[in-house]
Every structure is written in structure tokens, then in C-alpha cells.
Design a protein around this nucleic acid. Sequence first.
DNA 1: TAATTAAATGCAATTTTATTGCATTTGGAG
DNA 2: CTCCAAATGCAATAAAATTGCATTTAATTA
Lengths: 146, 146
Amino acid sequence: MAKKQQCESGVGHVDVRSLLQMHAFKVTKQRVAVLEHLQHAHGPCTIEDIAHAVPAVNQVTVYRMLKQFVDAGIIYQTDFRSGKAYFEFQEHHHHHVVCTSCGAQEAVEACLPASFVDHVSTQTKHFASVAHHALEFFGTCKRCAK
Amino acid sequence: MAKKQQCESGVGHVDVRSLLQMHAFKVTKQRVAVLEHLQHAHGPCTIEDIAHAVPAVNQVTVYRMLKQFVDAGIIYQTDFRSGKAYFEFQEHHHHHVVCTSCGAQEAVEACLPASFVDHVSTQTKHFASVAHHALEFFGTCKRCAK
DNA sequence: TAATTAAATGCAATTTTATTGCATTTGGAG
DNA sequence: CTCCAAATGCAATAAAATTGCATTTAATTA
């Protein structure tokens, strides 16, 4: 019997169990539940969002889990200046614009030019490696501009 | 008599009083003290750093002040994932690499290509304007890599 | 399949960061 | 100088994240 598949979107989702194994994480029902939630959320979530959406997992566990996932590069963490961290499962790496007035956020389907990332890796004096980056744009949304 | 000048560095520092007036801020001794501290710090500072370095200013006032300065674009705010916000007076706009192991940070004397920023301003559907951005690189420093 | 162990989880308590309300002070306009 | 909105200080509070420890569990080995 084939593994469980959830393919509502066109591209189909990566199997989170395989993803966990690839990164040498134990496959627990809590990790699977959290990752699948993030995978279906299609946008940045706070710890509280996740803990509410997946009540079978303790909130402290969500904190610990996401720290590991971010370190492993599975999950993208970003800071919208709302006082709490946001976490996103990204099929295609991208960033966001945030309204400094109301906090509204919009995805920016673009990432840094590879040449820029290379430049940083090359230029640094004190770093052995540069693994990932976070980028947020801040502005005023059309609603707040009026 | 000429205005007080502090020119230890080659380029000389902007007069913070003029800077405050340009942005329609009242020129208070607290604001001057905090801005001058940041100007001389030559690197990102936390609220606690500033409150300790400038004990004549209440820590809550530092919080409120920096929020205004960041909104006005006078001060650059960034998140190194240490749990607290960092603030920097930047003569030349730049970003940082942060070690995910020990938290060490290094300046990256480069900024986003203007074409990339333009692309974001153009692409956004819901934003009236994009004023600034924050960018952090994460990696492993040479000390921790060993 | 049973035993074993390091890793993961849950719960409670705590720490740390940031915010808020309100009384007082102050910069700058008139 | 007078006046007032803005800024500040202090105390209390709220919110986010972390820590310690007991218990459970995934995955390896026999």
C-alpha cells in the first residue's frame, strides 16, 4: 500500500516522514502533525497558531521542535516585528513585505540573487559557512495609506 | 561658536540635533544622548546595552524612542534570533551574518541591489510603498566550525 | 519480538523581553 | 512668559520564550 498522500495543490506535498528521516530526526506523531500543518498552512505561522491548530502537541514541544527544524533548514523563520517569531514551510524560497502600520503581510515571490549570496560568503572574514538568510521588507499597505 | 563636533572617525558624525529636527522630533537631552551613543557604538546595540550605557535615560523611554526612530528610518533594526531586538545607527546601509551556534555577528558591507528593491516595490499588489528592509545571513563562524 | 537507551515530550514554574497606564516634566510655538 | 501637546519616568502588567525534571517513545540491538 502506498504511503499516505495529500495532493490538494497542483504540485503535491513532500512526504514529511521522509523529510524527517533525511535529516536524522526521529519520526514522532508530533513532528509529523506539526510539519503537515505547516505544509498545508501556505504561509507563516506563529507558535501559538500551530499549538492551537494541532492541539495534540504541547506548545513547549512546538517551540523546541521548530528551533531544530530551522537549524536543519527545513523551516524558514522570519521576524515581522510583531513581537513573535513566524515559521513557514516553503516549497519555493521567498520573502515578505510587512505593513508597519497594521502588520499585514504579503509574500514576495522572489529571492536574493545567487550572486549576492555568493558575494557574502566570499566577503566574510570570520565565517566558515553561510547557510541561509532572512529578509523582510517594511512599508505601508494600501488600506493604511489612505 | 561652532556646534559641538565629535570627529574621531574619518568621516565625522552627523549632528543628531539637526537630524532630530529634520524628522520633526523634539530635541530632548534623552534623544540626543541615545542617538549619540548609537552613533559612537559603531554596531548593533540592544535596548539593555543602551539603557546601561546611557543611565540618565529610562529603559522604557529607550523602547519608545527607538520605535519612533526605526519608523522614521533614522535607525536600522535587525533580529539576530537572540530573543531581543538590535538597533544600529548606520552611516552606510549594510547587513550582518550571525553565527547560529554562538551568536557572533559580523557586518556585511553590502546591501541589496537597487534593482531587487525596485522589483519588490513593483511586484507587490497590496502595498502603497516599501520604505526599508532587514536582511540577516545565518551561518557558522570559524571558531564554532572547528 | 523483547530489551535497551538516547531522544522526545508534557507539565509546571520561571525568566526575559516588551508594553501599558498614569502622573509629571519639558521643548518649542505663540 | 504662558501654554499645551509631546516626551519622560515609574510601577505594574502582559506576552513570549526558556528551563528543569519526570515520563514516554522511536529505533537499535540481541
